[in-house]
Nucleic acid binder design. Structure first.
Lengths: 106, 106
DNA sequence: TGGTTATTTGGTTATATTGCCAAATAGGCA
DNA sequence: TGCCTATTTGGCAATATAACCAAATAACCA
């Protein structure tokens, strides 16, 4: 692969990789409903707050979310809304797999 | 997170994770142009064929591509075309990041 | 100022991923 | 049959991830 082309795919992969974790997908889904602070997300997810904070920093690092400090709390929000439509395709992969399964079964 | 909900996000993440690698993104891009055999992809990418084969099996395992044996060769093709539109969003994240950078610079 | 809450960062351990090499498998052809 | 080509699989070493705990920051309030 060419050097330039390689860099392009690495940049894309970095963004996709940031979404490739169940907790981070959950976070993105929650942020569809508006801004959420770290403490809220932590309660919903049920893991250590430091873990949630690190997941958020992964999303922030690639520009999917942005943060805003309000008093003691830090609120996160989606920066690129299309990430959601993106998930629509993922659903159709799942659906396609399920249909293939159904054919095998009956 | 609820058990059912957790399973849903894990299923989605598994599919996204399969796309979260530069070589696999390159492969998906190439398959947009039609079926390709492992040997062709190997030549284009320039890594060991066993490595390419493993990447393809990752994509196949989650149902993004399907394979077909023709003589001695195995041809792979996209099974879920929307994966490509999916990448459109990734591009817009990159674009958004670039714009933010431009603002800082100039 | 001192204490409390919210968040991030550093460190550690367990697990997953990736790429290479070598070996196994499978089809085609002399 | 025996050899060659295409592909997959197993094993190994290097690197990356993820979760927890503890400690560091930062803002608010008494």
């Amino acid at each position: 692969m060419e050097k330039k082309s390689k860099a392009k795919y690495e940049a894309r992969a970095a963004i996709i990789k940031a979404l490739a974790h169940p907790t981070r997908l959950f976070i993105v889904d929650q942020l569809e409903g508006g801004k959420r602070c770290v403490c809220e997300l932590t309660r919903m997810i049920g893991v250590d707050m430091s873990t949630v904070s690190k997941h958020l920093s992964v999303l922030r690092a690639v520009g999917i979310v942005q943060d805003e400090k309000v008093g003691q709390q830090v609120f996160y929000q989606l920066k690129v809304p299309c990430v959601l439509s993106f998930l629509g395709c993922v659903e159709s992969v799942i659906k396609s797999n399920a249909e293939a399964q159904m054919e095998l079964v009956g």
